[in-house]
Design a binder for these strands. Structure first.
Lengths: 329, 329
DNA sequence: CGCACACCTGAGAGCGTTATCACGACAAGC
DNA sequence: GCTTGTCGTGATAACGCTCTCAGGTGTGCG
């Protein structure tokens, strides 16, 4: 923390310049209570002239409000923070928080380590917490002090309002597109299996395959491109006659395509590939990726707004996902 | 801002429980001044037992320190915030700030609108500002109140310490690689021309071409894939005999490759393509992208640390860029 | 014994804001 | 006239913390 040099313009300065008491100046600037037209004008003019900017810190202190919103990403280690998805999330949240005078902090929250959550709950400078990719067990264990100022992204639980894309719908849209294109031997590269949002896609895949009378062929991934490449090779070795691979994320799909290309397999001619997320690079990959949208910024915005407003929200908000048919499938 | 319900544990509670005064408790927990072993133990135990978490807001208020670090991205409109580069930057900064009890806010700062900067300078809850992609004119006009707690990323000026990748070195490495591969008719798709970091790459390109006795062939881009695609078509129409395109960003390069593919031009056989940034998807694109590294997270971390520490830093810090030779060139 | 100097402690003054309270002025209604 | 009410205002008490200052106590030394 850095200590600035020159003295700031305070409410007292404004009040003095306007010839009123601090209380009146606060009322005028805060827009509450009564104030004569005369007082309103004088205070407004003085504030403009002096360049008064209210001190958010002092305001938060007296109001008992927090000044920080913590984005807490769960996972087995801190590398979960190195993720374009998290980047987008944080960036969108930071944008929503700025006009509220709230700042965003990004932390890694070890899985099943309730101490971290308790600390956040006891910290009065924290106005809210966005739990990302946690487990429903962790959500059930949210301390009472945090209730009402915590929401979850990617994981549902009755204890905490949650926001996420409609994973089942997105996965279903891509899988049906694959099926409509005549593909019948469809494998899936999953996300991390402990993650409930990833698991919803898997469930959708299994349900659809069963309904179509086709066998489910699962290989575990972790949403990354590198792991996607390895998973693709595993798919090929276990089921050489495969004609489509559905990847649980676009990054995974790009890794899959790169690996297939390395084996001389043509996409989509020999094997079609579908993804999920519609990241910016999906449109310019070769071949352009068929995928389903994942409105990360909208989800983050809604989640942050819910915390900031503190109004009760629906227990579960699922954002629609839309098929984007391109070349890869 | 959200008002929590239950009362928090304050320093007074800890002091009372430990049987000492608030001052002593503050000294023990703050680790400054004198305190007997006995007092230290009792206060520590009480703090642990009660689950005391210091209130950053109150601390910041009394210290006159800020609680927010503002990332201000310049540009003609707010769409500059929709950029994976900005996302990474903000995310890395948020990570560095978290342990300091500082939150990050993200704002768009209109080009040449000093009012925004003045407001940030007058806001005492702002501990620092990271100016991203601004103009050197704006840097020269940084208000005195902000001096010492503002740094720039991507633009240099004597007035403000700046951090950026060594654009000239990165561009040079890729261009030399292109040249070493036998390419002689090399065009460049630039970044936004008003951006000094983008201009440094252009200067490097022009210098290298002149030194090699080759003509400079420039088409303006804006770092995006979409614009890169359009720029590639323009390159083809103006110089049909081109054998390499150097793109100022990987996103641009991916757009270029997609456009070339659309015209039936093989990369790298007919036209080699080089990029800049080494984004995660560069490794899995088809063909895998030859590029130069851009350590965004390291740059952001260094810049944020400089602001947080408030220590004087070098006027200009250039982070090295390294060639990553893959398939596209 | 007197004095200097360490070590330790608590009272209390702020930091800049909000919000409660009491007070005064004036108008309307009985 | 007295009450009731609306409007406008200024003291002032918080909010939770840091840090200075004035006092202790004890030890060493002349």
């Amino acid at each position: 923390m850095n200590t600035p040099t020159s003295r700031a313009v305070t409410l007292d300065d404004v009040a003095r310049a306007a010839g009123v008491s601090r209380a009146t100046a606060s009322r005028v600037l805060g827009g509450y209570g009564f104030a004569s037209v005369d007082a309103r004008e004088r205070v407004g003019a003085a504030a403009d002239r002096l360049g008064y900017v209210p001190n958010t810190t002092a305001r938060a202190l007296v109001r008992g409000a927090g000044v920080r919103l913590v984005v807490a990403v769960s996972g087995t280690d801190a590398t979960v923070l190195d993720d374009p998805y998290v980047d987008r999330l944080v960036s969108a949240v930071a944008r929503v928080c700025a006009p509220h005078g709230v700042g965003v902090a990004l932390e890694w929250l070890p899985l099943d380590a309730p101490a971290g959550l308790r600390r956040l709950g006891d910290d009065r400078s924290v106005c809210g917490v966005l739990l990302v990719n946690t487990t429903s067990r962790a959500l059930d264990a949210v301390p009472a002090g945090l209730r009402g100022r915590v929401v979850s992204i990617g994981t549902g639980s009755p204890a905490v309002p949650s926001f996420d894309v409609d994973n089942a719908a997105g996965a279903g849209a891509v899988l049906r597109h694959l099926y409509a294109g005549g593909r019948r031997r469809i494998a899936m590269v999953t996300g991390p299996r402990w993650l409930s949002c990833a698991e919803r896609s898997v469930t959708a895949y299994q349900g659809l395959m069963r309904a179509a009378g086709l066998p489910a062929r699962l290989v575990n991934g972790d949403f990354t491109a590198a792991r996607g490449g390895r998973a693709a090779l595993e798919v090929l070795s276990r089921w050489p006659d495969i004609d489509a691979i559905y990847a649980a994320s676009d990054a995974t799909a790009l890794g899959v395509i790169a690996a297939l290309r390395g084996r001389g397999i043509r996409v989509p001619h020999d094997v079609a590939v579908g993804g999920f997320d519609d990241i910016p690079y999906a449109a310019v990959s070769s071949p352009a990726l068929t995928t389903a949208t994942h409105p990360v910024a909208r989800i983050a915005t809604a989640a942050a707004t819910a915390v900031l407003d503190g109004r009760p929200v629906l227990p579960v908000t699922a954002f629609p996902s839309r098929l984007v048919a391109r070349e890869s499938a």
